[in-house]
Structures are given as structure tokens and as C-alpha cells.
Amino acid sequence: MNDRLGRIKALWRKANAFAEEAYNAPYRSAIARAKRDQDDLFMLMVYSELMGIPNPASFYTLELQPLMLERFHEWHIRMGMEHSPLDNIRCC
């Protein structure tokens, strides 16, 4: 009985692995492209910071600060920090 159950489990694992591969196969190139784009953006941001070029995203995202302030407060409370860990962000 145990041997039969073991074979059924092994067969189930193989079928699960095959189904996972078949489902994920069409999306591999899209995922790789998205990862490459994200890496390129990160490299651009790091390089521009290294060269002293100001980050234009900080200007364009300034209007999001009121929305993010509330979420930041909830986050640092959830993390167990009584007050904001950042000197320039006072939310409490």
C-alpha cells in the first residue's frame, strides 16, 4: 500500500512539474524582457547618481508625496518603529 501511494505521489509531482512548465513557457520571454528593462532602469539611475546628474523622477513624483506619507506611516508602525526612521520625513 505504501509503495503504491509513493508511486502515485511521484506521478503527481511529475504531472505538476509538467503542467507548471507548460503554463510558464509562453511567458518566459516577457518575464525576461521585463527583468532586463528593470535592470536597465536601475543601471541608468545608479549611473546618473554616480555622475551627479539630478534624478528627474523626484520632481515628477513630488505630487505623490501626500499619498505616500500615509502609507509610509502605516509601514513604519507595522515594522515596529515608533517614529519615522528618516530624518526628512516627519509623519508622526
Rank of each mutant, 00 (worst) to 15 (best):
E70F: 02
C91A: 12
M68P: 00
Q38R: 11
A17R: 12
S58D: 09
S48D: 15
Y23C: 02
P85S: 01
I77T: 05
E82L: 07
E82M: 10
D40M: 07
D39S: 13
P56E: 00
M79I: 04
M81T: 08
R7S: 12
H83M: 05
W12F: 14
F72R: 00
R7T: 12
R36H: 08
K14F: 11
M81C: 12
F72D: 00
A34N: 06
W12S: 15
Q38G: 06
K35Y: 02
Q38A: 13
I8K: 06
G80T: 03
G6N: 15
L50K: 10
H73Y: 08
L41G: 06
P66F: 02
P66A: 01
L62C: 06
V46H: 02
H76S: 00
P54C: 01
Q38F: 10
K14P: 01
E74C: 02
G6C: 11
Y27Q: 06
Q65C: 07
P56A: 01
R78L: 09
K9L: 13
R4N: 09
M51P: 01
E63A: 11
N24R: 12
H76V: 04
L69E: 05
C92E: 12
M43A: 15
A19E: 05
R4P: 00
F72V: 02
N2S: 11
G80P: 02
R28Y: 10
N55C: 04
E63M: 10
E74H: 04
R28M: 12
M45H: 06
I53C: 03
N2K: 12
R28F: 09
R13Y: 06
L69N: 04
D87T: 11
M51H: 07
H83Q: 08
N55Q: 02
E49Q: 13
I31C: 03
T61E: 07
R78N: 08
S58V: 08
A25L: 13
L86G: 01
A15N: 10
N55F: 00
R7I: 11
M1T: 06
I77W: 00
S58I: 10
F42P: 00
M68V: 10
E49H: 10
N88R: 10
L62F: 11
T61R: 05
Y23H: 04
A30D: 13
E20Y: 04
L86E: 05
L44E: 09
A15S: 13
E82N: 11
L67W: 06
M68A: 08
M43C: 04
P85D: 01
M68S: 03
A15K: 13
A30R: 11
L41Q: 08
A19Q: 06
P54R: 04
D40F: 03
F42I: 09
Q38I: 04
S29F: 07
P26S: 03
R78W: 07
L67Q: 10
I89V: 15
E49D: 14
R36W: 05
D39W: 07
D40V: 05
